[in-house]
Measured scan of single mutants.
Amino acid sequence: EVTIKANLIFANGSTQTAEFKGTFEKATSEAYAYADTSKKDNGEYTVDVADKGYTLNIKFAG
């Protein structure tokens, strides 16, 4: 089991951190699914992958 950390960075400057656990593939998939659901309210996003994929910096356009 691994933990994927997602740092969500919103257009207004606020941030949120979420953690997803499971296999690398499952946790990563859940992090992207979470970003997709947040996209409806926060606009399109880009992802900067860090820490060999264990940290995702997800920046929303607003």
Rank of each mutant, 00 (worst) to 15 (best):
A31N: 01
A31E: 02
A11G: 09
V49S: 10
F10G: 02
A61I: 14
Y32I: 11
D41V: 13
E25V: 09
T23N: 08
T3E: 04
Y45N: 00
G53C: 04
I9D: 03
N57F: 09
F60M: 03
Y34P: 01
K40M: 12
A27W: 01
A61Y: 12
F24W: 12
Y45V: 02
T23V: 07
N7S: 06
A18G: 06
E19D: 08
G53Q: 03
N12C: 11
Y32Q: 04
K39E: 05
N57A: 04
A33N: 10
E1S: 11
T23P: 09
Y45I: 03
T15I: 15
N7P: 00
K59Y: 15
E25C: 11
T3Q: 05
T46S: 10
A35S: 04
A6V: 15
V49F: 11
K26G: 11
G62R: 07
V47C: 07
L8I: 11
A61N: 12
T46E: 10
L8C: 05
S38H: 15
I9P: 00
E19S: 11
L56E: 02
K21Q: 10
Y32D: 02
I9S: 07
K39H: 05
D51W: 02
N57W: 09
A61W: 14
S14H: 13
V47K: 01
F60S: 00
F20C: 04
Y54I: 05
S14M: 14
K26H: 12
E44M: 10
Y45C: 03
A18E: 10
K40C: 12
Q16D: 09
V47F: 04
S38Y: 15
D48Y: 11
E1M: 13
F20Y: 04
K40T: 10
V49G: 04
G13T: 04
I9G: 03
K52V: 06
N7C: 12
K59H: 14
D51V: 00
V47M: 05
E30Y: 07
V49R: 07
D48A: 11
D36E: 14
D36C: 09
N42A: 11
A6S: 04
Y54V: 05
N42C: 13
K21D: 05
Y45M: 04
V49H: 07
A33W: 09
Q16T: 12
D41G: 10
N57Q: 06
A27N: 01
N12S: 08
L8E: 00
L8M: 09
T28Q: 09
A27C: 06
F20W: 04
Q16H: 13
A50N: 08
E25L: 09
K21L: 08
I4D: 00
E1L: 13
L56Q: 01
F60Y: 12
T15M: 13
L56T: 01
K5W: 07
A35L: 10
T23R: 06
N57P: 00
G22P: 00
N57Y: 11
A11I: 09
A35M: 07
I4T: 00
A61M: 14
E30W: 06
F20Q: 01
F24M: 10
E44I: 08
L8R: 00
Q16S: 11
K40P: 12
F20H: 02
T28H: 06
D51S: 03
T46Q: 09
T23E: 09
K39P: 03
E19R: 08
T15D: 04
T55E: 07
K52Q: 14
V49K: 08
V2I: 11
T17L: 09
I4R: 00
I9K: 07
T15H: 10
A50Q: 14
A50C: 13
Y32N: 03
D41C: 15
G53Y: 02
D36R: 04
S38A: 15
E30L: 13
N57R: 04
N42S: 09
T17S: 13
N42V: 06
K59W: 13
A18D: 04
K5S: 07
L56K: 00
K52T: 08
G22I: 01
T17P: 04
L56F: 04
V2L: 06
T28M: 14
A31K: 00
K39Q: 08
G43L: 04
Y32A: 03
A11L: 08
K59P: 01
Y45T: 01
F10P: 00
K26E: 13
S38N: 15
A27Q: 01
T3G: 03
A6T: 08
D41A: 12
A31Y: 01
I58M: 10
V2T: 06
T28F: 08
D48P: 00
A33M: 10
A18N: 08
F24T: 04
D48N: 11
F60I: 02
F60N: 00
D51I: 02
G22M: 01
I4H: 01
N7H: 12
G13L: 06
F24S: 03
A50V: 13
A33I: 09
K59L: 12
Y32S: 02
T3R: 08
G53F: 02
E30I: 05
T37R: 15
V49I: 14
D51P: 01
E1Q: 13
S38M: 15
G22H: 02
G53H: 02
I58L: 06
Q16F: 12
A35R: 00
Q16M: 13
K40A: 13
K21W: 10
A50F: 11
T23Y: 06
A31T: 03
G53V: 01
E25N: 08
I58W: 00
E30A: 13
G53S: 03
E19F: 15
G62K: 09
E30D: 14
A50M: 13
F20P: 01
T46W: 10
T15Q: 11
I58P: 00
Y45D: 01
N57H: 08
S29L: 14
T46K: 08
G43N: 04
G13C: 09
V2D: 03
Y54W: 07
L56H: 03
A6P: 00
E44V: 09
E1R: 09
K5Q: 08
I58S: 01
K26V: 11
F10K: 04
E30S: 08
D41T: 13
K40I: 13
Y45S: 02
A18W: 10
N57E: 06
A50G: 09
Q16V: 14
K40G: 12
D36V: 05
F60A: 00
L8A: 02
G62S: 10
I58H: 00
L56M: 06
T3V: 13
Y32K: 06
I58Y: 10
E44R: 07
Q16P: 01
E30M: 13
G13S: 05
E44K: 07
A31Q: 01
Y32V: 06
D41P: 05
S29V: 10
T46D: 07
S29P: 01
N12I: 04
E1K: 10
K21A: 07
D41S: 11
V2S: 05
F20V: 01
G22K: 00
E44D: 13
Y54L: 14
F24E: 04
T23A: 07
T15G: 07
G62C: 09
V47N: 01
S14A: 13
A61E: 13
K39V: 14
D48F: 11
K21N: 09
A31D: 01
L56N: 02
K5R: 14
Y34T: 04
F24N: 03
Y45E: 01
T3P: 02
G13H: 05
Y34H: 07
K21C: 11
F10S: 03
K26I: 12
I58T: 00
G43I: 04
E25Y: 07
K5P: 00
A11N: 08
F20T: 00
F10Y: 11
A11Q: 10
D48E: 15
V49L: 09
G62E: 10
K26Y: 11
A6Y: 00
V47S: 04
V47I: 10
T3D: 02
Y32F: 13
A18I: 15
A35G: 03
F60Q: 01
V2Y: 05
K21V: 13
D36S: 06
Y32C: 07
Q16L: 14
D36F: 05
N42L: 08
G62I: 08
A33G: 08
K5C: 11
I4F: 01
A11D: 06
A6E: 00
S29E: 14
K40W: 10
V47H: 02
A33S: 09
D41Y: 13
F20A: 01
G43V: 04
V49Q: 07
Y32P: 02
N57I: 14
A50Y: 10
T55H: 04
T28R: 09
A50S: 12
L8V: 06
E25I: 10
S14C: 15
N12T: 07
F20I: 03
K5A: 05
F10E: 02
G22C: 02
E19C: 15
Q16R: 12
K52D: 15
A33T: 08
T23W: 06
E1D: 12
E1H: 12
S38G: 11
A61K: 13
N12A: 05
A27M: 02
Y54E: 05
K39S: 14
V47D: 02
T37Q: 15
T15S: 11
A31S: 03
